[in-house]
Design a protein around this nucleic acid. Structure first.
Length: 869
RNA sequence: GCCGGAGUGGCGGAACUGGUAGACGCGCCGGACUCAAAAUCCGGUUCUGGCGACAGAGUGUGGGUUCGAGUCCCACCUCCGGCACCA
C-alpha cells in the first residue's frame, strides 16, 4: 500500500465502486426492519455551502451506522427547485430560471457525490420537474373537491420587493420573511388551504412526537395558538339588532367590564371616525404605528373614546367603546371587553384615561387596590367571584361555565375556541413555480383542469424581467379551451407557494418512478421518516405544512401514517469569524478569514490581526453565521480539494455536537487531517502482520500487563462510543476514534507478537467506528489490510466483555470530599479490605492522623471517601 | 414582557444515573530529526505558591441540600434562539 495518505486518489475510486455496484440503492423488503433517514433537500442556489455539508454529513453518519446495525436504510436526495432566486438570477443574467436551476443541480450533485454520501441517487427528484409537480396539482384538485382548498378575495400581505403575496406565517414583524421589505395590504383573489381544519389534530399530535426537540414542539404549539374562551355579543345601544362581538378567556370577569376597546381597523372605529376628524386622525396614527416588537413593548397605551355605546349583555348597563392601540385586528374579533381590575393592560389604560375600575375577583386575605397593579388580580387558581350577583363565590371555571350558559340562553354568546393559526394562502404571482390547475371561463367560472390533462406544464423558456409574472404575456400558455363548455378560456397564471413542493417530497421519494400515482404501497413500507435532519429555521413553516399535507394524504387514503417525521434533529448553524475595515464613515469592507493573518503572543493570546495583502490591521467583528454579506464563508469545494471529503466530514463531526452551533477553524481542519494521516501510518506500519492472518484470534492470555490495560482501554472507549453514537453525540465518537488510535500507536511502538495481535483487533474496531464519519479511508484500509471485501457489509463492533474485566482497580481516596490519594485494590476486594488499604495510604494518613474517623464511604469501582471530624 | 436553551482553561469542547473537573483536538512552550525550513515524532500546558513531593483556589454570581455538586434545589446576572400587548 502507498506510504502516503492521498485522499485525492482513493476517494473518487471508492465512490466509483459504490456507484457501480449501486451500493446505496434501497429495495423494499418487508422481512427487514427499515430505516428512512432524510435530510432536508437543498435549494439549488449554485453551490453547496457549509451548512449543507454539515446537514448531510450528520444524515450520512446516521444512515451508515443504521446500515451496519442491519437495518434496510433509505437515504434519498432531491432538489427544492422552484423559487425566487432563479427568477432573480434570470433578471440579472437573462438566463431562463429553468436553465439556471438545472445547471446548478448538475454542479451541486457532483459536489454531493464528491463528499461520498450513501445516497440512493435513483430516487433523485426535482420539484420543478413536471413528473413531480403533476401531483401537487392532482392533490390540489382533490383538496378543492373536498373543500379543503378554496378561493377567496381577502386583504393579503403584499411584498413590494418580491411583488408577491405572503402568508401570515411569512410576515415577520410586518416585513416579508425573505426580503425584509415592509409589507403592504392589498386585495387579491387567491387560493387557500384549510390548515385550520386540522388545527386540533396538529396540536394534539405534537404530544406523539417525543422524538422531536422540545423547543420545536413548543414553537408549533404557540404558532397554532389554541385558546378556549367565550364569545360575547354586546348589542349596540342605538341599534340593538347589531352587536359588538368580543372574545375572552376570562368570562368570569364579565361583571367587571367597564368599557370595550376595538382595534383601529375595526369597522366600528371607521364608522365612528366619519363624524370625528380627531378620531380619524388618531386611527391613522395607530395604523401607521410600528409593529416592531421591541418598540411595541415600550409603547405607551393610547386610546380615544368613539362616543359610541354598547349594552352589557347581563346587566343592561351602557358601556363606552374606545379605540385602543393595544387591541389587534388580526386576533379574535378585533375587539375586547376591558376589565381593568383583572387585566394588566386594561388596568393601565383605565388609570391613564380615568375609566372606572371594578373589582370582581377576590383572593382571601389579599387587599385590592386601584392604585397599583397586583399579580394576583389575574389569578385563576385561588380566586372567587365577588360583586358579580348570581356568580358570587364561584371559582374561575365554574363562573365561566355559568356565564357561558346564561349568555347562550339569551342568544348573546357562548363557549368558543379561538386559534391563532390561519389558513394557508398558496397563490403566488410568480413564474417559477407549480402552475395552479385552474381554467377561467366566462361562462362556467373557475373550472378545475381535468385529471387527464395534468400536469399543466410550466413553459421553461420564460425569462422574467422584474415586471411581474411573465406567464401573463404567454398567450400559448394562457389560451385554452374550457373543459366544461369547450369555449375559449384563460389559464390561471398564479403558481403555488414553494412550501407546497416541500410538503410531501419525503413521500414521493418512496415511489418516484410511478407515473400513474402520487404514491403507491411502497410509501407505506418506508413512511414515516425515522430520522429527519435539518435546520431550526424550518421549525414552524415547513414542518407544520408537511404535517398538514401528510394528514390530508392520509385522509385521502394515500398513506397510512398520521405524522410524517418520527424523530427530528435540528442541526446548529455554521459560524465563522468576521473581519472588516471601515475605510470611511458609513462604509464597511468585509474580508474573508482566508485573507487575514493573526499573530499570537507566547501564551497563545492574540496580538495583532492584519490583512495578508497589505500587512495593515483589520478589525474583528466577532463570530457570526457564514454568509455572503459578511464574506466569512468557507467554500466546501476548496476544502475537499485540499484535504479530501473524509477530513471535511471528520472535522465537522468532531468540532461540535450536531445540535449546537459549529465554529469554523482552519487549524481544526488541519488537526482532523493529521489524525487521518496517522490512521494511515499506523495501518501502513502494521500492514504485514495484519495481512498475515492474525484476524479472528481470540486467545488473549499472552498479553503483557500493559497490553492488557491497552485492550481494556480500547474496549472501554468502544463501549462509550457506542453509547454516544446512539444518542447522536458524534463529536465524542470522533474523539473516541482518536483515543483508540493513541492507544494503538503505543502498543504498536512496543511491538511483540501479542501486541501485533492487539493492534490487529484494535485497528479492525477503529476502522469500523470511523467508517460512518470518514468512510473512504476506512473502507480503503479495511480492504487493503484484508479485513473483508466491503466495510459496508461489516457488522458494527461491540466491546468484548472479557476485555472489560480487570483484576485490579484503582480507587480514588478522598478525605472530607477532597482528593488525597489513590490505591490499587483487587477487583473482588470486600469493603473492609478496601477501607483498610485506603486508610493506610501515605498521603491520606497526613490528613487523618490525630483525627476521628467518623465514617468511610466506599463507592464500588469508583472511590473511597473518609469523613473525619 | 413571556417561553425555551446555554454559561466549564488561551480556544472548540468532554465529564452517561451526583463520585478523580478540564477527556479529545486546536493553540502555545520546550526538545528530536534537518545546513535550514516544512512535514513528522517526543514531552509540557486551568490558575496561584513551591526546585520538588505537594498545597490552596477553581465550572456566570450568591445561598442551600449532601460524606461528596459542573451535575440537584432557591434567588439573581449575562448571552443565544423563539414569541403573541393573544383578550
Amino acid at each position: 500500500m502507498n506510504k502516503q495518505y492521498d485522499p485525492a486518489s482513493i476517494e473518487p475510486a471508492i465512490q466509483k465502486r459504490w456507484e457501480e455496484v449501486q451500493a446505496f440503492s434501497a429495495i423494499e423488503d418487508p422481512a427487514r426492519e427499515k430505516f428512512y433517514c432524510l435530510s432536508m433537500f437543498p435549494y439549488p442556489s449554485g453551490k453547496l455551502h457549509m451548512g449543507h455539508v454539515r446537514n448531510y454529513t450528520i444524515g450520512d453518519v446516521i444512515s451508515r451506522y443504521q446500515r451496519m446495525q442491519g437495518r434496510n436504510v433509505l437515504q434519498p436526495m432531491g432538489w427544492d427547485a422552484f423559487g425566487l432566486p432563479a427568477e432573480n438570477a434570470a433578471i440579472q443574467n437573462q438566463v431562463p430560471p429553468a436553465k439556471w436551476t438545472y445547471d446548478n443541480i448538475a454542479y451541486m450533485k457532483q459536489q454531493l457525490k464528491s463528499l461520498g454520501f450513501a445516497i440512493d441517487w435513483q430516487r433523485e427528484l426535482a420539484t420543478c420537474h413536471p413528473a413531480y409537480y403533476k401531483w401537487n396539482q392532482w392533490l390540489f384538485l382533490r383538496m378543492l373537491k373536498k373543500g379543503i382548498a378554496y378561493k377567496k378575495t381577502q386583504v393579503v400581505n403584499w411584498d413590494p420587493v418580491d411583488q408577491t403575496v405572503l402568508a401570515n406565517e411569512q410576515v415577520i414583524d410586518g416585513r416579508g420573511w425573505r426580503t425584509g421589505a415592509v409589507v403592504e395590504k392589498r386585495e387579491i383573489p387567491g387560493y387557500y388551504l384549510g390548515i385550520t381544519r386540522y388545527a386540533e389534530e396538529l396540536l394534539a399530535d405534537l404530544d406523539k412526537l417525543t422524538g422531536w426537540p422540545e423547543r420545536v414542539r413548543t414553537m408549533q404549539t404557540n404558532w397554532i395558538g389554541k385558546s378556549e374562551g367565550v364569545e360575547i355579543s354586546f348589542p349596540y345601544a342605538d341599534s340593538p339588532s347589531e352587536a359588538l362581538m368580543v372574545f375572552t378567556t376570562r368570562a368570569d370577569t364579565l361583571m367587571g367590564a367597564t368599557y370595550c376597546a376595538v382595534a383601529a381597523e375595526h369597522p366600528l372605529a371607521s364608522r365612528a371616525a366619519k363624524g370625528s376628524p380627531e378620531l380619524a386622525a388618531f386611527i391613522d396614527e395607530c395604523k401607521q404605528g410600528s409593529i416592531m416588537e421591541a418598540e411595541l413593548a415600550a409603547q405607551e397605551k393610547k386610546g380615544m373614546p368613539t362616543g359610541f355605546y354598547v349594552t352589557h349583555p347581563l346587566t343592561g348597563e351602557p358601556i363606552e367603546v374606545w379605540v385602543a392601540n393595544y387591541v389587534l385586528m388580526s386576533y379574535g374579533e378585533g375587539a375586547v371587553m376591558a376589565v381593568p381590575a383583572h387585566d394588566e393592560r386594561d388596568f393601565h389604560f383605565a388609570k391613564q384615561y380615568k375609566l372606572p375600575i371594578r373589582q370582581v375577583i377576590d383572593v382571601q386575605g389579599k387587599p385590592f387596590s386601584t392604585d397599583a397593579w397586583q399579580e394576583w388580580y389575574a389569578d385563576k387558581e385561588n380566586a372567587r367571584c365577588i360583586n358579580s350577583g348570581n356568580y358570587n363565590g364561584l371559582n374561575h371555571k365554574a363562573a365561566v361555565d355559568a356565564i357561558a350558559t346564561d349568555l347562550a340562553a339569551k342568544g348573546a354568546g357562548g363557549k368558543q375556541i379561538q386559534w391563532r393559526l390561519r389558513d394557508w394562502g398558496v397563490s403566488r404571482q410568480r413564474y417559477w413555480g407549480c402552475p395552479i390547475p385552474i381554467i377561467h371561463c366566462d361562462h362556467c367560472g373557475d373550472v378545475p383542469v381535468p385529471d387527464d390533462q395534468l400536469p399543466v406544464v410550466l413553459p421553461e423558456d420564460c425569462v422574467p424581467d422584474g415586471s411581474g409574472n411573465p406567464l401573463n404575456k404567454r398567450d400559448d400558455f394562457i389560451n385554452c379551451k374550457c373543459p366544461g363548455c369547450g369555449k375559449p378560456a384563460r389559464r390561471e397564471t398564479d403558481t403555488m407557494d414553494t412550501f407546497v413542493d416541500s410538503s410531501w417530497y419525503f413521500a414521493r421519494y418512496c415511489s418516484r418512478d410511478n407515473d400513474d400515482a402520487m404514491v403507491d404501497e411502497r410509501a407505506n413500507y418506508w413512511l414515516p421518516v425515522d430520522q429527519y435532519i435539518g435546520g431550526i429555521e424550518h421549525a414552524i413553516l415547513h414542518l407544520l405544512y408537511s404535517r398538514f399535507w401528510n394528514k390530508v394524504m392520509r385522509d385521502l387514503g394515500l398513506i397510512n401514517c398520521d405524522e410524517p417525521f418520527d424523530r427530528l434533529l435540528t442541526q446548529g448553524m455554521v459560524l465563522n469569524e468576521i473581519f472588516y475595515r471601515k475605510p470611511e464613515a458609513g462604509r464597511i469592507n468585509y474580508f474573508n478569514p482566508a485573507e487575514v493573518e493573526i499573530s499570537l503572543d507566547e501564551k497563545g493570546q492574540r496580538r495583532r490581526i492584519m490583512l495578508k495583502a497589505d500587512g495593515k490591521p483589520v478589525e474583528s467583528g466577532g463570530i457570526g453565521t457564514m454568509s455572503k454579506s459578511k464574506n466569512n464563508g468557507v467554500d466546501p469545494q476548496a476544502l475537499i480539494e485540499k484535504y479530501g471529503a473524509d477530513t471535511a466530514r471528520f472535522f465537522i463531526m468532531f468540532t461540535s455536537p450536531p445540535e449546537q452551533t459549529l465554529e469554523w477553524s482552519n487549524a481544526g481542519v488541519e488537526g482532523a487531517y493529521r489524525f487521518l494521516k496517522r490512521v494511515w501510518a499506523l495501518c501502513q506500519e502494521n500492514e504485514q502482520h495484519i495481512k498475515t492472518g492474525m484476524k479472528g484470534k481470540t486467545d488473549w492470555t499472552n498479553l503483557t500487563p500493559e497490553e492488557k490495560q491497552a485492550r481494556f482501554d480500547i474496549h472501554a472507549i468502544l463501549k462509550q462510543a457506542n453509547f454516544d453514537i446512539a444518542r447522536f453525540q458524534f463529536n465524542t465518537v470522533a474523539s473516541g476514534c482518536m483515543k483508540i488510535l493513541n492507544v494503538l500507536e503505543d502498543v504498536s511502538a512496543r511491538g511483540g507478537e501479542s501486541g501485533d495481535q492487539l493492534v490487529c483487533e484494535g485497528t479492525g474496531i477503529l476502522l469500523r467506528l470511523l467508517f460512518p464519519i470518514s468512510p473512504h479511508i476506512s473502507d480503503h484500509l479495511w480492504r487493503e489490510l484484508g479485513y473483508g471485501d466491503d466495510l459496508l457489509g461489516a457488522s458494527w463492533p461491540e466491546p468484548d466483555a472479557a476485555a472489560l474485566v480487570q483484576d485490579e482497580i484503582e480507587l480514588v481516596v478522598q478525605v472530607n470530599g477532597k482528593l488525597r490519594g489513590k490505591v490499587l485494590v483487587a477487583a473482588d476486594s470486600d469493603k473492609a479490605a478496601i477501607e483498610q488499604k485506603a486508610l493506610a495510604e501515605e498521603n491520606v494518613r497526613r490528613f487523618t492522623d490525630g483525627k476521628d474517623v467518623k465514617k468511610v464511604i466506599v463507592v464500588p469501582g469508583r472511590l473511597v471517601n473518609i469523613v473525619v471530624s
